[in-house]
Amino acid sequence: MSNQGFVTLYPLIIGLSVVLFSLGAIGVLIRRNAIIIFMSVELMLNAANLAFITFARAYNQIDGQVFVFFVMVVAAAEVAVGLALIVAIFRTKRSINVDDINQLKG
């Protein structure tokens, strides 16, 4: 037990991960600024990463950490494309409020 560090608290860390994920979900649902929505998605990805790292440590498997690496790569790709989309939308509509982007509405 002497050399284990944080991992003895793993239920609390997973709990923190759940709380952060829920806060990210709230952010996605209640904000209307597209950039804030994107940042909330990043928060949810980070919460999932925390759970991955915690279980990787608890089971002493490196695969969880490798998967976090992949999540980060996908997040980087998502941010690049997402922000490009936001810039393109802002150029035509002069707004990044998601309620203003309703031209496909029938």
Partner: peptide, 23 residues
Amino acid sequence: AIMVLFLFVIMLLGAEKTGARML
């Protein structure tokens, strides 16, 4: 890197105030 990209786009669009409406 990713947060610098976010801040760069926020400042490029001058979007820091546009989302004030909470909903």
